[in-house]
Computed example of a mutant assay.
Amino acid sequence: MRALLFSLMTFPALLSAEGYDGLYHPEGQRGWLCDVPSLGQDGGALAIREGKLFGVENTCEMSNPVSVRDMDAVLYDLECSSEGEITNERVLVARSDTGVIVLRNGFAAHWRTCE
């Protein structure tokens, strides 16, 4: 019983965005930087770090992780801030052989891990 309680308490931590933490750039596009100072800028690095998704000129808080059965993927709620606007949406983040796939409603992107 104690082991079950412990696993239930730690399960959300297993789904956290930390499993996908890293610096990325769009697959197949040249000229993108892969360093922290360029994070979020046009042509700069993309990232998932500390529960946040950093895109181009936007930052999103990732919350309410839900594991996708039989896949190395997690569905998140996002609260995004971009150019003074706040929006809410969902995102699915899935591991790929070279980085992650970021799937939003109507849009999929393959982010390659920076090396």
Score class of each variant (00 low, 15 high):
residue 39 L to D: 05
residue 13 A to G: 10
residue 107 F to C: 08
residue 76 Y to N: 03
residue 28 G to R: 09
residue 2 R to K: 15
residue 5 L to G: 02
residue 58 N to Y: 14
residue 112 R to V: 15
residue 51 G to R: 07
residue 21 D to I: 07
residue 56 V to Y: 02
residue 62 M to T: 01
residue 85 E to S: 14
residue 108 A to E: 10
residue 20 Y to H: 06
residue 4 L to Y: 01
residue 99 G to P: 04
residue 54 F to V: 00
residue 75 L to M: 13
residue 114 C to T: 03
residue 34 C to L: 11
residue 43 G to C: 09
residue 81 S to E: 12
residue 87 T to S: 15
residue 32 W to S: 02
residue 46 L to T: 01
residue 1 M to K: 06
residue 61 E to A: 07
residue 80 C to S: 06
residue 2 R to E: 13
residue 89 E to L: 12
residue 3 A to T: 10
residue 114 C to P: 02
residue 22 G to K: 04
residue 52 K to D: 04
residue 62 M to P: 00
residue 95 R to W: 05
residue 44 G to S: 10
residue 23 L to D: 01
residue 95 R to H: 09
residue 60 C to T: 03
residue 34 C to N: 10
residue 46 L to H: 00
residue 87 T to D: 09
residue 84 G to P: 04
residue 22 G to E: 00
residue 62 M to Q: 05
residue 98 T to F: 14
residue 102 V to D: 01
residue 99 G to Y: 01
residue 86 I to W: 04
residue 100 V to S: 02
residue 37 P to F: 00
residue 95 R to N: 07
residue 4 L to F: 05
residue 66 V to F: 05
residue 56 V to Q: 11
residue 77 D to I: 00
residue 1 M to I: 07
residue 109 A to C: 07
residue 3 A to K: 11
residue 77 D to Q: 15
residue 100 V to C: 00
residue 25 H to M: 13
residue 112 R to F: 08
residue 24 Y to E: 01
residue 106 G to V: 09
residue 111 W to M: 08
residue 59 T to Q: 13
residue 94 A to S: 13
residue 24 Y to H: 05
residue 81 S to I: 08
residue 49 R to N: 06
residue 38 S to Q: 08
residue 102 V to W: 02
residue 101 I to T: 05
residue 78 L to S: 06
residue 23 L to Y: 03
residue 17 A to K: 03
residue 35 D to T: 12
residue 72 D to Y: 04
residue 106 G to L: 12
residue 46 L to R: 10
residue 50 E to A: 11
residue 40 G to M: 13
residue 108 A to D: 04
residue 25 H to D: 00
residue 51 G to H: 06
residue 77 D to V: 00
residue 11 F to M: 15
residue 114 C to M: 12
residue 21 D to N: 15
residue 9 M to E: 05
residue 24 Y to P: 06
residue 37 P to Q: 07
residue 21 D to E: 14
residue 60 C to M: 11
residue 38 S to T: 14
